[in-house]
Design a protein around this nucleic acid. Structure first.
Length: 582
RNA sequence: GGGCCGGUAGCUCAGUUAGGGAGAGCGUCCGGCUUUUAACCGGACGGUCGGGGGUUCGAAUCCCUCCCGGCCCGCCA
């Protein structure tokens, strides 16, 4: 704002340029009157970008980073690896892909912050297939006894991996694989065990007063006694908080295993007094995060809005004043809601990657995350068709078939990354069945029926190869799963057995007439017309007649356009069913 | 209470970089396909761009202010 109201307003420690909201306002340099100091700024003349990942890539390039450029994400293992966690991988992926396309070497890593202690029991877990299960399905007691221990020191509740942490990390890695995202999983525990953290730990413990001064600006609990290192108790295995002395030469600390407060509860310490090396403990989060930047040489990291005002400013400060390094380029992403509600594993409002991939193609899911990260979005399972439609339109825009400049500009840049083929973009547009139409086809299992109807409705080109047809029809199973999962207006199923139903004489006679008509051989349009004629001829309400048809074929009161549908089915079957014979 | 981010049609969202026509898809309604029955085609309806003020010949876009929502502001991550 104005130039001269900077009273003795104390610390301007973090300048606006440290705002993590690089995709929002032009917070930096916006008021051109800052004048001189700012030549390393944001590199001035960068053009407009239709794809946000290019904006981020510009920021990274402006730092002139060493290669490979390192992009990081990370979470603490919790009960379920849900789609929200996946932001940490896929948002970085788009930036990584753009940088690679620009000729850089990029390393994308994901830290599983698995030396963190389990602080409370999760309400839900995900098994190895990503399916969500309740605590009751595992040995909850065993988990409870391990409160306070690092996730890597807790057995896998499903008894498959070497630890709780490994189980969780494997889930996320599997999700990344499913979406063809190359990411290197890094165990935070191993970083300590391998000594990668020795140097930063030494830096912290060598200047306790200096570190306390920085931290105390962000944490009330930091006093002259506070030692920011949490050893693992050699006796009970829990993370401890009370360090009594530091021996820099030996690289050890003395500690007492005291109680740890977690919310309303207390995790009891065992009282053991012991000695731990730098590798037998961890730094608290506010130091650990910038420590990871230093250890891994991180150039870019996306994070959720919850970190934007808490961890990030302190992390910037710690990086500079404690470690003497520059923090990475940041990027805040908005959280999305699921079916209009916040993601919550305890409330059961979560969805996993494998679950979603039963309902739509990987490219559609990647498209969802290619949309602007600063917008709060809702992923509405009931209306997944809208998302898929938007993707289809986006894809058509890439192939120049949509009269929309903005969308086309976005698609031209982002589409190759969305389909994971930045260096080899598709030259021909895939054949896509409209999602709701695919759901209609899903009412019948017969693949030939599906293809015939899709062709008749003009959704498959005459000269399509078998591969193209097969690829197009693959969406039918997705849409079918969607209809079943939501129980929506496409959730009809062609009945193979004759449903139990009675009809009055007029309707029965009309059905018989229609059966004769079908037996004589007519196409779908004709059958549709004949249904009206027949109903009138027998003085039956058209709606009642259709209802009878839906009862016979779908055991329901409604359904798709019946005539066209019957026209594609096997004639003998239709005739017999109309005659209520089979 | 303070800070940050967001608020564009019923729904999902573009458009804000460089101020100039308020848009798309879906839904709804109407119509078409000899035919009230969810797929196809055409058309229409639909918005105080969260409210107010300001700058400007001109504001969704820039400035101020207020409202609403989310996040952060003890610990943890």
């Amino acid at each position: 704002m104005s130039a001269d109201d900077d009273a003795p307003d104390a610390e301007a420690d973090s300048t606006p340029a440290d705002s993590p909201h690089i995709l929002s306002e032009q917070a930096r340099g916006a008021d051109g009157e800052v004048g001189a100091g700012d030549e390393t700024g944001d590199g001035g003349g960068k053009g407009f970008h239709a794809f946000w990942a290019d904006v981020v890539a510009d920021e990274i390039e402006a730092r002139d980073p060493d290669e490979p450029i390192v992009i990081k994400g990370g979470v603490s293992p919790s009960g379920v690896a849900h789609l929200g966690n996946f932001n940490e991988i896929i948002r970085g992926y788009f930036v990584a892909a753009v940088l690679r396309e620009r000729g850089h070497e990029v390393r994308q890593v994901f830290t599983s912050d698995d030396k963190d202690p389990l602080r409370k029991l999760p309400r839900k877990l995900a098994n190895a297939d990503g399916e969500i299960v309740g605590l009751g399905e595992v040995d909850a007691g065993a988990l409870g006894r391990n409160l306070g221990k690092p996730y890597t020191a807790i057995p896998d509740p499903f008894g498959e991996r070497e630890s709780y942490a490994a189980h969780f990390a494997a889930l996320l890695k599997a999700d990344a694989d499913r979406l063809s995202i190359p990411v290197e999983m890094v165990s935070n525990t191993e970083l300590y065990a391998d000594g990668a953290f020795d140097e930063v730990t030494r830096t912290v413990l060598a200047d306790l007063d200096g570190v306390r001064e920085v931290l105390s600006e962000y944490q009330d609990k930091v006093d002259g006694e506070y030692v920011p290192f949490n050893p693992v108790c050699s006796e009970c295995g829990k993370i401890t908080e009370t360090v009594t002395s530091v021996d820099l030469d030996a690289e050890t600390v003395e500690y007492v295993c005291t109680d740890m407060d977690v919310g309303d509860n207390t995790i009891e310490g065992c009282g053991h007094e012991g000695t731990a090396t730098f590798r037998e403990g961890k730094l608290p989060w506010r130091l650990e995060w910038p420590g990871q930047w230093d250890v891994l040489g991180v150039d870019f990291e996306p994070f959720g809005k919850d970190h934007a005002e808490g961890s990030w400013p302190s992390g910037v400060d710690v990086a500079r004043r404690v470690f003497g390094t520059e923090p990475p380029v940041p990027m805040v992403y908005e959280w999305f809601t699921l079916n209009g509600e916040p993601l919550s594993s305890s409330a059961g409002n979560i969805v996993t990657v494998p679950e979603l991939l039963e309902l739509l193609e990987p490219a559609v899911l990647r498209y969802f995350f290619a949309l602007h990260p600063k917008k709060a979005r809702d992923l509405d399972i009931e209306r997944l068709d809208q998302l898929v439609d938007r993707f289809d339109r986006f894809e058509r825009a890439y192939f120049g078939e949509v009269d929309d400049e903005d969308l086309t500009a976005f698609a031209e840049r982002a589409y190759p990354f969305v389909v994971g083929r930045a260096d080899d973009p598709p030259e021909e547009k895939p054949v896509r069945l409209p999602y709701t139409f695919a759901a209609v086809l899903g009412m019948v299992d017969d693949p030939d029926f599906r293809e015939r109807l899709a062709r008749d409705e003009g959704h498959i080109p005459e000269d399509a190869s078998d591969e193209v047809v097969e690829a197009a029809l693959a969406r039918v199973e997705k849409a079918r799963s969607w209809a079943e999962r939501t129980g929506n207006e496409y959730d009809y199923r062609l009945q193979t057995e004759l449903p139990d139903a009675d009809f009055d004489d007029d309707i029965a006679a009309a059905l018989d007439d229609l059966a004769d008509f079908v037996a004589a051989g007519h196409d779908g349009d004709a059958i549709q017309s004949e249904m009206y004629e027949t109903a009138r001829a027998h003085d039956v309400e058209v709606s009642d007649f259709f209802a009878a048809g839906y009862r016979l074929f779908f055991d329901d009161t409604q359904g798709p356009r019946l005539g066209e549908f019957l026209g594609e089915l096997e004639r003998d079957y239709v005739v017999a069913r109309l005659r209520r014979e089979a």
